[in-house]
Simulated scan of single mutants.
Amino acid sequence: MKLHRPWQWLLPCALALAACHGADDEDRAELSINPQDILQLPVDSPKIRHIREAEAIPEQRPLLEPLTGKITYDETRTVRVSSPIAGRVTAIPAQPGAVVRVGTPLLELDSPELGQAQAEYAKATADLTGR
C-alpha cells in the first residue's frame, strides 16, 4: 500500500492510538486503590524530607554473592588410613561401614616392595647370626 498524500497516514495512526487508549482504561479498571492504603503526611511533616522519588529499574542480581571456600572432611570424625608400602589390592576383608578395631586388616596387598623388604630382612638376619 503506497501512501501519496500526507493525510492518508492519519487513519492508521488514529486506530492504533484508540487501541492503546482502550488498553490503558482496562488496566486502570483492574487497579483499585483502597483508601486505607493511602498514606498522607501533613505539608510541614519532618518525615517528608526523608522521602525520595526515583525510577525503579529492574536488574538481574544473583541470589548469593560468589564465595570462595574449601570442602573438607570433618577431621574430628574421620581417620586417615594409608599403607606404608605401595602395591596392588587383592582383597578387602573390611566392608565399608563395618566397625573395626585396632589391628583388624582393612585390605590385603600384593607388593613387590614388601617382598624385597622381606628378602633384605632375611639376608640381614642371616648375616647377623652367621648362617
Rank of each mutant, 00 (worst) to 15 (best):
Y73H: 09
I85G: 01
P112M: 08
E30I: 10
E65Q: 12
E59V: 10
E113N: 03
P105A: 02
T76P: 06
Q36W: 01
G115K: 05
V99K: 03
Y121D: 00
L64H: 02
Q116N: 14
E55G: 12
A54L: 11
V102F: 11
A94R: 02
S32M: 12
S83L: 11
E55L: 10
A122M: 01
I85M: 10
G22I: 11
V89D: 00
S83I: 07
L39P: 00
V43F: 09
L107G: 01
H50K: 08
D24V: 12
R80F: 05
V100R: 11
P66K: 04
E120G: 03
A56H: 02
D24H: 11
E55R: 14
V102S: 15
I85V: 14
T78M: 08
Q116T: 14
A124Y: 12
A18S: 15
L64Y: 03
P46C: 12
P62D: 08
R77V: 02
D127I: 05
P58N: 04
K47I: 04
R49Y: 02
R28E: 02
K70F: 05
Q36L: 07
Y121F: 06
K123T: 15
G115L: 08
D27Q: 04
E65L: 09
T90F: 07
P93Q: 08
E65Y: 02
E59F: 10
R80W: 08
R101C: 03
P35Q: 11
N34G: 06
V81W: 09
T104G: 00
P84N: 04
S45Y: 09
